[in-house]
């Protein structure tokens, strides 16, 4: 691949190991900065690792964009050197983070342009199997699910700030310990806030004629 060609240039030399990849220092054509690229087999390994990370992050409706997104993610990794992050290890966690930010940027771009598929926009893939009542598999159920979701959002906004934060993380699927750690509160306090917040939320939904 091209990365191999770039790295295999005679003036390049392996100058360090980074995250298990051999890294080349390569003078760019205009000699204005140094670009770090992994060499030879290291390049292919990095690319494959990144492609796996992108594939893992990508929602099914973006699966046909995996190659393009991997290219974009590779370019982001290449930007490490000019930013002075050359010593940052290209760990699996780091590659996953790059893949995540690349994919989310693309998802947001599509949401802005209204290119998002029905499946993503209604959250059906997440809700399938444990949604309100039966799984939302037809448009009517999806619309109903959206309506209930909107009412939950409205009721969330009416909670006191601390209860809203705790309940939000609970609704996002976090455990009590995770919610407490994320909010910087004790488990006991967080548990109380979730308990009281959910009670407020159910009361609010009941007033709207919705009973989960």
């Amino acid at each position: 691949m091209g990365g191999n060609r770039a790295c295999a240039a005679s003036e390049n030399a392996v100058d360090k190991k980074r995250g298990g990849y051999d890294v080349c220092s390569m003078a760019n054509p205009l000699d204005t900065a140094m670009v770090a690229l992994p060499c030879d087999a290291g390049y292919e390994t990095l690319r494959q690792d990144l492609a796996r990370a992108v594939t893992r992050v990508c929602p099914p409706w973006l699966a046909d964009q995996v190659d393009d997104l991997t290219h974009v993610a590779m370019m982001r990794v290449m930007k490490l050197a000019p930013r002075g992050d050359r010593d940052r290890a290209l760990s699996r966690g780091y590659l996953t983070k790059v893949a995540y930010t690349t994919v989310v940027d693309e998802i947001r771009r599509r949401r802005r342009r209204r290119e998002v598929s029905l499946e993503d926009n209604c959250g059906a893939s997440e809700a399938r199997g444990h949604g309100f009542g039966a799984p939302p598999i037809d448009p009517e159920q999806i619309a109903s699910g959206r309506e209930i979701g909107a009412q939950i959002g409205d009721c969330l906004a009416r909670l006191s700030d601390s209860r809203r934060l705790a309940v939000t993380l609970h609704l996002q699927g976090h455990t009590l310990r995770q919610s407490a750690a994320l909010l910087g509160w004790t488990a006991k306090r967080t548990e109380n806030l979730i308990y009281r917040g959910l009670a407020d939320l159910r009361k609010c939904l009941a007033a709207k004629g919705i009973s989960p």
């Binding site: 995540y100 930010t101 989310v104 940027d105 947001r108 949401r111 802005r112 209204r114 998002v116 993503d120 926009n121 209604c122 959250g123 059906a124 997440e126 809700a127 444990h130 949604g131 309100f132 939302p136 999806i142 699910g145 959206r146 209930i148 979701g149 909107a150 939950i152 959002g153 609970h170 609704l171 996002q172 699927g173 959910l198 939320l201 989960p212």
Partner: peptide
């Protein structure tokens, strides 16, 4: 069920004040 319904909410376009990924 509440979590599933919350996840099923319609997603509007990202806002200007959305945190970066």
């Amino acid at each position: 069920r509440l979590s599933a319904a919350f996840a099923a909410s319609e997603r509007a376009a990202p806002r200007a004040d959305c945190p970066q990924p």
